[in-house]
Every structure is written in structure tokens, then in C-alpha cells.
Design a protein around this nucleic acid. Structure first.
Lengths: 225, 225
DNA sequence: GAAGGGCGTAAAGAGATCGTAAAGATTGGG
DNA sequence: CCCAATCTTTACGATCTCTTTACGCCCTTC
């Protein structure tokens, strides 16, 4: 029952309040106060839920969110003083599960935390895929190929991670493009061909007879792992 | 993309607003104005998402919620004028996924609807047909034949998938052609014969005595699986 | 038993999609 | 401000898919 929750907020007072409230009902709480330390904590601790403030000293919480969505499906509750529509919509569309405006009721937040954990814990996508040759660690954002680490650019990793999150499933080009390049690039499929080409070269997959990154002509791609 | 959404609210104005907003972005919307008609609509239409007002003439929306949770996991967004903590907490703990207080921004609601549908659609219907020899996995877009993967072109898969979605039923040539080739190709039935021929070869079905892809002469085709 | 319609198959050309390399544009860090 | 990494643009050959065309079969009908 005791879930791990990461709180990313730069205001110490808020962190303290959340820490006390969340610990009092049995959660393990860890904290971070910036985009960078937040990402680091995410990778290291792999929490079950993230409470994320938007106003951070070294960048926008939304950046953190879109970054983490490339390798994790952890539920995120965004916390913000901004009550405008556009921020809410942006956050939810990037991948947040909920959005709470400050000032907020602690009891309400706890209820929303419960709702997220209740609905999402059953989901058990393994964060590591491995077949002895290719090794993909979604939590650590690490890909190794026969013990040799593979260096991937952000786009390359995003494509591979998206495919990895639905392994064996065909992901359409449109899905990949809209999720990674943005909603306006739904038909720029040449980007994808280039990235997939690079990925195949880096993981040593023969394009004419791919073992891992299979092409579904006219549809999309699929990771066999 | 087009999900079915049920709106349960007794205020006609709200229903109208939601209907217009939701339909304008491509959802199918159905409506109910009471606990009883809401439950009936839920059972009959099995929507992908429920927008639920708490104040209903014949009872509390929370009753409907707890009732429906005994037989359905459909995501629920609660809508309410009540801004008190206790209602929010109750609704979320009973099984609501989100809670929006009236008056609300339509754009925000749409974003929350998107967030719910995005997170839930993946774990929908397993959609696998299998008889030990032929295996059709509609979710993964994967067809295997005696453990051997069958490689299908987009058109071939589209035909097979359409038949699979209505297995045992006859699908007319016109239906298949218009849905897959477009509304202008309703009578180009030779396309269909060629694709079916290829499909039979690839899954090893004898055309003179087909086990899976049966021809209904003059009408269409039917998948027996 | 000949004719015609619907069906199944094969093969070739047209068209779309894919993989790749390399040059230009952007971005972020030093 | 420059450099390096990344992304975008451009180009072209290879490959796959779709369409077209052709022909043989089976059945029904006359």
C-alpha cells in the first residue's frame, strides 16, 4: 500500500506541508526543488506518483513533464498558482493526469492522490527490456547493445522509448510524430525514417531484415523485444 | 479517436453546451438527465467516458457512481456546483477520476476529457481472435499463423481487421470497399478479390473450401473464427 | 451446350513509401 | 562569439504496395 511519492516544488513551505500530509497517511515522500534535481530523483527513485509545481527556479515544470513522459508513465498531479486555462490545458495535454490550483485543500489533494494511485498502480509496464543483446532501461534512459552503451539523441531516444512502451504493438507514424514532434507534424514522416535509420545503425539492426525495429509499410513501426 | 461520451446532467443548458463542445471535437455524445436514465444509458451504450453532474432530480450522482463502479471501470469526470472538500473527496474515493467545479471552462474540461481518454484507451478490449492455428491480435496489429507471423500490407490488414471486428457476420463488398478504399470505390470489387486472394494464400486458406475467409457470392465476405 | 456474370489468380506497370547520405539551419554550452 | 551536437531540409535510388490488365474457372441461365 505504501506508495512512493516525489514532490517537486521550490517553496519549502509547500514541500513541508505536503511531506507531513502525505507521510501522515503512510506514503514514502521524497523531494526535489528544481527541474534538474526533479528529473534526477525521478530516474533514481522511480516513484509511483509525482506532485509537480509549475514554477521552478531553473525552468518550467512543463518541461520536466514532457521530458519525463519520454521514458515514464508515472502519474503526475500538477500544482500551480496559475489558474488560467492555457496552463491547465497544456499540462494535461502534455501528459499530466490532474491539475490542482493553489491554494488548495490538503484533503482534496490527498483524495486526488488516492484516485491516481488506485487507478494506475495495476499498470506494470516493465521499465527494462532485455533479450541478452539489446537492453533498454526506460527508467534510467539507458540503452546498451552487447554491454556497449548506445548514445542516442533526444529524438532518437523518444522514438525508441515510445515504441518500447508498447512493445510488439504497431505505433503509427502519426502517433509518433504528433507525440514527439508535436501535433503539427503529423505527416512529416521523413523525420521518422531518418531517426529510425539512425537507430538501426546504432543498435546494429539490419534494415532489410530488421530484428528489432520492424517497419510496417504505410502504417508505422514496431519494436520486437 | 472518436470516443463515446455520456453526459448525465439535469440542466438542459449544461447538456447543450457540453454536447456542442464535445461533438465539435469529434466525440459521439449521448445524454441522460437522471440517475435512472443514466444507469440505463451506461449499460446500453457502454460509453468510453462519463461526465456526471452530482445534482440530479431523482437522487445523488454519487449513488450513480458507486452503483456503476460495481460493474464498470469507465472513467468518470464529476461536475458539480459544490466546491466543498467533502464532496470532492467522496466522489474521488468512490471512484471518480476527476472533479470539476462549476462554473468551469469548457476548454479545461475538454483537456481533462482528453487526459482521461488518453490514459485509459490503451488497456481496452484485448481484441484477440484465436483458434489454435490462426491468431489475430487487433490491438497489436499482429497476425500469426501456426506461430509464424504473417506479413500483411495495409489494405490486406484493413480487410482482415474489418472482417474480424464482425466475425461470423457477412460484410458486403460495398461496405469493405467504401470503408477501406474510400466512398468513391464502392463497386471496384475486383480490388477486393485480389486482396482476399492474397490473404488466403498468406494464412493458408484453401479458396475452393475456405475455412476462414468465406465468400458469400454476390454479397461479400465473412470471417469464421 | 453456349453465354454471361461473379470469382480467383497471375503478372506487369505506376505510384507511393522507405532508407540513406549529405548539406544547411538551429540550438545550447563554453 | 564560436563550436559541437542536433535537428531539418534536400535529394535519390531501392523497395513495397496498389492498380491495371489479362485469363481461366465455376455456376447459372437460356
Amino acid at each position: 500500500m505504501s506508495a512512493r511519492i516525489l514532490v517537486v516544488d521550490d517553496e519549502m513551505q509547500i514541500r513541508k506541508m505536503l511531506r507531513i500530509a502525505l507521510r501522515s497517511v503512510g506514503y514514502e515522500v521524497t523531494e526535489a526543488d528544481s527541474v534538474e534535481s526533479g528529473l534526477a530523483a525521478l530516474v533514481r527513485q522511480q516513484p509511483d506518483l509525482l506532485v509537480l509545481d509549475l514554477g521552478l527556479p531553473d525552468g518550467d515544470g512543463l518541461e520536466l513533464l514532457s521530458e519525463l513522459r519520454s521514458f515514464s508513465k508515472v502519474p503526475v498531479i500538477v500544482l500551480s498558482v496559475r489558474n488560467g486555462d492555457s496552463d491547465k490545458i497544456k499540462a494535461l495535454d502534455i501528459g499530466a493526469q490532474d491539475y490542482v490550483t493553489k491554494p488548495f485543500s490538503v484533503e482534496e489533494l490527498l483524495a486526488r492522490v488516492r484516485a491516481q494511485l488506485r487507478d494506475r498502480l495495476p499498470d506494470k509496464t516493465p521499465a527494462v527490456l532485455d533479450d541478452g543483446y539489446l537492453h533498454i532501461d526506460l527508467a534510467r534512459r539507458l540503452v546498451t547493445c552487447k554491454t556497449q552503451e548506445v548514445e542516442l539523441t533526444p529524438k532518437e531516444y523518444a522514438v525508441l522509448a515510445t515504441l518500447a512502451q508498447h512493445r510488439q504493438c504497431v505505433i503509427t507514424q502519426k502517433q509518433l510524430l504528433e507525440q514527439i514532434w508535436g501535433p503539427t507534424h503529423g505527416q512529416d514522416s521523413h523525420y521518422l525514417r531518418i531517426v529510425v535509420s539512425h537507430l538501426r545503425q546504432k543498435i546494429g539492426d539490419d534494415p532489410t531484415e530488421p530484428k528489432y525495429l520492424k517497419t510496417e509499410a504505410g502504417i508505422g513501426y514496431r519494436l520486437m523485444l
